[in-house]
């Protein structure tokens, strides 16, 4: 519990830093006034804080939380520490959806989507959601047919490869300008969401995220393995369907708005297990929400470090910052236990 409070305090602190720091320096007092809407603010500074930094920070919080929860659930349901949100090809599905929208609109519709602005953004979001949900539906269907978790995992990875292959084919037939737009989308960013879309994204996640608590008992039982869980009264097929659907929807929404963000969902659950020294999902679920949010906010801050023109790709920052942290936690834990594995 003290850890939870500490992390919450850190989230507030880093959130403030996110509003304060950036390539344009704005004094603390000015930021403070802008947030509390005290009059007499510089209109440019106000725009930077309210239309750029604030949406980014909010996006980072909910996206980080969502991906971490999804990673936690995937690792438990597949009993595989390497599982993550991207493992079932759901994010590849999103990429495929976006690829269809971006690349085909150029080749067939004759317009480069990148020029369309808002309508183009909207189309990409819809494409991503459609792509990821259709892959998810396929996986859920398969999960009711096959018995073993490993089989399902392999099928998921295969579907991911197929999606990537289709993307490759689409790219081959596309104009260069569209390919560039697609590649930029693929880098992942918390900054793409703006204005009304941030609000929509935020509300969706605020509704969906707490639903993760409905699955804690199911996930705790799944830790024991399918047979034991079943003997304790759990319907395995239904449990799998719930967890994969829920996790898939989280990934679909986040990927639609932020692009594929890889490292976070895999790493944060391990970080949480290391910090809280438990496998109990009643603790890990809130822990992943908090640590995921903090992690994403921190990465977002580093990506926009003062002195850097523009922003670094989020995917690079998450791995560069996150990998050493996770490795340190795992190493320290092993030394504490004094037991080699």
């Amino acid at each position: 519990m003290p850890y939870m409070l500490l992390i919450t305090a850190l989230i507030v602190f880093v959130f403030m830093l996110n509003l304060l720091l950036g390539s344009v320096s704005i004094p603390f007092r000015a930021v403070w006034n802008i947030i509390w809407n005290a009059g007499g603010n510089d209109i440019i500074q106000q725009n930077i804080v309210l239309k750029s930094r604030l949406p980014q920070a909010v996006t980072a919080i909910v996206a980080g939380a969502g991906l971490s929860i999804s990673g936690l659930q995937m690792q438990t349901v597949f009993r595989n520490p390497l599982a993550g949100p991207s493992v079932l090809g759901i994010s590849s599905g999103a990429s495929m959806g976006v690829a269809f929208v971006v690349l085909l609109s150029g080749s067939i519709g004759g317009v480069a989507l990148s020029r369309l602005g808002f309508a183009g953004d909207m189309a990409m979001t819809v494409g991503a959601i459609a792509g990821s949900l259709s892959v998810m539906a396929l996986i859920v269907y398969v999960s009711q047919k096959v018995k073993g978790n490993v089989t399902l995992l392999i099928i998921g990875v295969m579907i991911g490869y197929v999606a990537n292959a289709i993307i490759g084919v689409l790219k081959f037939f596309s104009v260069e300008e569209d390919i560039r737009a697609f590649v930029v989308w693929g880098l992942g960013s918390f900054a793409r969401v703006s204005g009304n879309q941030t609000t929509l994204f935020f509300y969706m996640m605020i509704i969906v995220l707490p639903l993760s608590f409905l699955l804690v008992k199911t996930l705790n039982l799944l830790l024991l393995g399918d047979a034991y869980a079943r003997n304790l009264g759990l319907n395995i097929k239904r449990a799998r369907m719930y967890v994969i659907s829920y996790s898939g929807i989280l990934v679909a929404i986040v990927t639609a708005y932020c692009g594929p963000i890889n490292f976070l969902g895999l790493a944060v659950p391990h970080l949480c297990r290391g910090i809280f020294k438990t496998s109990d999902h009643r603790t890990l679920t809130p822990a992943c929400i908090l640590v995921g949010a903090l992690f994403a906010l921190t990465c977002n801050l580093i990506a926009r470090m003062p002195g850097i023109e523009g922003a670094l790709p989020v995917n690079s920052v998450t791995a560069l910052v996150g990998a050493p942290v996770v490795i340190t936690v795992l190493f320290r834990k092993r030394r504490n236990n004094g037991i080699a594995e």
């Binding site: 804690v216 008992k217 393995g225 304790l232 009264g233």
Partner: peptide, 25 residues
């Protein structure tokens, strides 16, 4: 069954799952 970071008491406690409520408390 070896779940990292789960105590024996918690594991035995999972045996109570058929009797516990929605949250498994």
């Amino acid at each position: 069954v070896d779940i990292r970071n789960m105590s024996v008491e918690d594991l035995v406690g999972l045996g109570r799952s058929p009797y516990t409520g929605f949250w498994g408390i």
